[in-house]
Measured scan of single mutants.
Amino acid sequence: IRCIGVSNRDFVEGMSGGTWVDVVLEHGGCVTVMAQDKPTVDIELVTTTVSNMAEVRSYCYEASISDMASDSRCPTQGEAYLDKQSDTQYVCKRTLVDRGWGNGCGLFGKGSLVTCAKFTCSKKMTGKSIQPENLEYRIMLSVHGSQHSGMIVNDTGYETDENRAKVEVTPNSPRAEATLGGFGSLGLDCEPRTGLDFSDLYYLTMNNKHWLVHKEWFHDIPLPWHAGADTGTPHWNNKEALVEFKDAHAKRQTVVVLGSQEGAVHTALAGALEAEMDGAKGKLFSGHLKCRLKMDKLRLKGVSYSLCTAAFTFTKVPAETLHGTVTVEVQYAGTDGPCKIPVQMAVDMQTLTPVGRLITANPVITESTENSKMMLELDPPFGDSYIVIGVGDKKITHHWHRSGSTIGKAFEATVRGAKRMAVLGDTAWDFGSVGGVFNSLGKGIHQIFGAAFKSLFGGMSWFSQILIGTLLVWLGLNTKNGSISLTCLALGGVMIFLSTAVSA
C-alpha cells in the first residue's frame, strides 16, 4: 500500500470489461488503480535517471590570480610587451599612462603600459546536455494484498515479495511487465516523455548541487567559461569578468580578483528545477510519464477462499488518510488461513446495510499462523458509518465519521480527471477507425466523469442509474429551450454510458 502517505494521489477506475487503462505517473504523486474483478494496485514513479550526459560548457565562479607582471614604455618608444601576453592562462590589459620627467621619461606624453596576471579557477559549475534516449524511469508497484503497516513504502525485498514489484522503462524499451506472483502480471506500455523539453534544458552542477536550467539563461551567464570537458589546462574565455584592473600608474597597475560568485548564482537559480546525482547518473524529480496498463493477466487472489471465522482485533486505531479513506490494521487469532476477511461498512448496526467501498479488493489472510496481521483500506461514505470486521458474535466494529460532501468530492474528481486527460493529450485517442474513435470517446468520458459518477451514484443499482439517464434524455427531447435540451441530452447520455461502463 504505497499511496496512503502521498498527498498527491489519483484514483483511476477501469471500465467494466476493459483490459487496459491509461494513467499519468508523476514525481511526488501516486496512482491507485481499481477495476472490477482485479486486485487494487498502487503505482508510483520513484526516480527518473539520466546517463551519458555530455559537458557543454563550464563557468568559473571563484578564481585566484598570481605571478603579476607589468612592462611600460616612454612616449615614442613603441608598445610595451610581455611574453605572458601569448599565454592563455594569463589575463592581460594594455593601456596608456601619462609619462614625463617625473617618472623617468625625457618627453612628456602618453606611454604604453601592459599588465598580466595568471588566472586560476578555484571553483566552477558545469552544464551538461541531456539526450531523451538516455532517460530511465523506475516504477514501483504494490498490490493491496496481505501486507501490514511495516511494509508500507518499503522498497527492500521486492524481489521475493509477490505484493510488490519494480520495473524500469526507457525510450528504447518502453514496454515492461511486472510479475506479482499469485496476482498474475501487469503489463506497462509507457510513452517516455517527461513533459520537459530537454532540447531547451541543461543539467547544471555547482558545488555538489544540481538544477535543470534553460539553455539561453545558461549561455548568457557573465562569467569566465570554457567549452567542452575539462582537459586539465582549460582555456578560459572572458577571464576579465572576475578580474579587475585598478587605476594605472606610470610603471605598474594593481590587479585584484573578485570574490566568489556562488551567492549571486544561487539567487539567479531561484525557482529552477532541482535535481540530484546518483553516482555518474543524474536524478530528476520533475515531469511525468504516461503509461497504458494492460490488466488482462491480472487476477484476484483468494476468490475461492472461505470466510475467516475466528476473532479479529484492531492492532491500531483506524486512521484517516490524506485522501479521506480509512486504513485499518487487524490481527487474526485463527489458524484456518488462508481465508477471506469479512469486512464491510454499514450505516447502522441493526440492518448492516453496506455503504462505501473497499479500496483493498478481496482482502485475505494468507498465513495459517496465529496472530497474522493484515492492513486494508476503505472508502467510507460522508457522515457517520460503522466499520464491521468478522462474522457472528466475534465481529468487531468501529464508529467512523467522514466530513465533507459527495458533491465536493465529485467536483474534485472531475477536475482531476480533466487534468489527466489534458496530460494524456492525443495519445488517449485513436482515429484509425470508426470503432477506435468511439472507443476513445468512451475512454475520455470515463477518465473525466467516472470518479464523479461513482461518488454521486455508486450506491444505486445499474438499472436505477439507466432509468435516471433515460429520464434526462426524455426531458431533453421534450424541452423547447435549446440549451436546457442539449444539457439534459448530454447528461442523460453520459449517465447511461457510465452506468453500463463503470464497474460497481
Rank of each mutant, 00 (worst) to 15 (best):
I1C: 04
C3R: 05
I4A: 06
I4L: 07
I4E: 10
I4F: 09
G5K: 04
G5C: 05
R9Y: 07
R9P: 01
M15Y: 04
S16F: 02
S16T: 15
S16K: 02
G17P: 00
G17E: 03
W20E: 05
D22I: 03
V24Y: 07
L25F: 03
E26T: 01
H27S: 12
H27W: 07
G28H: 04
V31P: 00
T32W: 09
T32V: 01
V33Y: 07
V33W: 06
V33Q: 04
T40I: 10
T40F: 08
I43S: 01
L45G: 04
V46C: 06
T47V: 14
T47I: 09
T47F: 00
T47P: 00
T48A: 15
S51W: 10
R57G: 13
S58R: 00
Y59E: 07
Y61F: 14
S64A: 13
S64R: 15
I65C: 02
S66K: 14
S66Y: 14
D71I: 07
S72W: 06
R73E: 10
C74G: 07
P75F: 08
Q77G: 11
G78S: 09
A80N: 10
Y81N: 12
D83I: 12
K84A: 12
S86E: 09
S86D: 06
S86Q: 15
S86M: 05
Q89G: 04
Q89W: 12
V91T: 10
V91D: 05
V91C: 12
V91N: 11
K93W: 12
T95L: 08
T95N: 14
L96N: 08
V97K: 03
D98Q: 08
D98G: 12
R99V: 06
W101G: 05
W101E: 07
W101I: 04
N103Q: 04
G104R: 04
C105V: 03
G109K: 06
G111N: 04
T115G: 05
C116T: 06
C116E: 05
A117H: 04
A117K: 08
C121M: 09
S122W: 14
M125N: 08
M125L: 14
T126K: 01
S129G: 07
I130E: 07
I130C: 06
P132R: 00
P132A: 14
E133T: 03
N134Q: 07
E136L: 06
E136M: 03
I139F: 06
M140L: 15
M140P: 00
L141M: 11
G145D: 07
Q147I: 02
H148R: 05
S149L: 11
M151Q: 03
N154I: 02
N154V: 02
T156L: 02
D161T: 13
E162V: 00
N163V: 02
A165P: 14
A165H: 10
E168N: 01
T170L: 02
T170N: 06
P171I: 05
S173I: 04
R175D: 09
E177A: 08
T179N: 14
L180V: 11
L180E: 07
F183P: 03
G184C: 08
S185A: 13
L186Q: 05
G187H: 01
L188S: 02
R193Q: 10
G195P: 01
L196Y: 08
F198Q: 05
S199H: 01
D200L: 00
L201I: 15
Y203K: 08
Y203M: 11
L204C: 09
K209M: 08
K209D: 07
K209F: 08
L212C: 08
V213K: 10
W217Y: 07
W217Q: 07
F218C: 08
I221S: 02
L223E: 10
H226G: 00
A227F: 12
T231W: 02
T231R: 09
G232E: 12
H235W: 06
A248R: 05
K251F: 05
V256M: 02
V257R: 00
A264I: 09
A264Y: 09
V265N: 12
V265E: 12
H266T: 13
A268Y: 10
A268T: 13
G271D: 09
A272H: 11
L273E: 04
D278F: 14
G279T: 01
A280Q: 10
K283F: 15
F285H: 12
S286R: 15
S286V: 00
H288M: 12
H288N: 02
L289C: 04
K294P: 04
D296V: 07
K297G: 03
G302W: 10
G302H: 04
V303T: 14
L307A: 14
T309R: 15
T309L: 13
A310T: 02
F314R: 00
F314L: 15
T315N: 12
T315C: 13
K316T: 07
V317C: 01
E320N: 06
E320R: 09
T321S: 07
L322P: 12
H323M: 12
T325D: 08
T327N: 04
V328T: 14
V328P: 01
V328C: 03
E329D: 15
V330P: 05
A333S: 14
A333Y: 11
G334P: 05
T335E: 14
D336F: 13
I341A: 08
P342T: 04
V343L: 09
Q344E: 04
M345N: 02
M345F: 14
V347D: 10
M349T: 15
M349W: 11
Q350N: 14
L352P: 14
L352Q: 12
L352D: 11
L352A: 07
P354V: 11
G356Q: 04
L358N: 11
L358Q: 07
I359H: 10
T360V: 03
T360L: 01
N362D: 11
I365T: 08
T366A: 15
E367L: 01
S368A: 15
T369M: 04
N371R: 07
S372N: 07
S372H: 07
M374Q: 03
M374W: 03
L378E: 07
L378R: 02
D379G: 10
Y386I: 15
I387E: 04
I387S: 08
V388Q: 12
I389H: 11
G390S: 01
G390C: 05
V391N: 10
D393P: 15
H399P: 14
H401S: 13
R402T: 08
R402M: 04
S403I: 15
T406Y: 03
T406A: 10
A410P: 05
A410S: 08
F411K: 11
F411G: 02
A413D: 00
V415I: 07
R416I: 01
A418P: 12
M421Q: 07
A422I: 15
V423R: 00
L424V: 01
G425D: 09
D426G: 06
A428S: 11
G432M: 11
G435N: 15
G436S: 15
V437S: 00
L441C: 05
G442L: 07
K443G: 04
G444F: 07
H446F: 12
H446L: 09
F449K: 10
G450A: 06
K454S: 10
G458R: 08
G459M: 13
M460D: 12
F463I: 13
S464V: 00
L467D: 04
G469Q: 06
G469H: 10
T470W: 00
L471P: 11
W474L: 02
N478T: 06
K480I: 03
N481Y: 09
N481D: 14
N481P: 10
N481L: 02
N481F: 06
S483D: 08
I484F: 09
S485V: 01
L486Y: 03
L489I: 14
A490P: 02
M495N: 04
F497D: 12
T500D: 06
V502G: 10
S503Q: 15
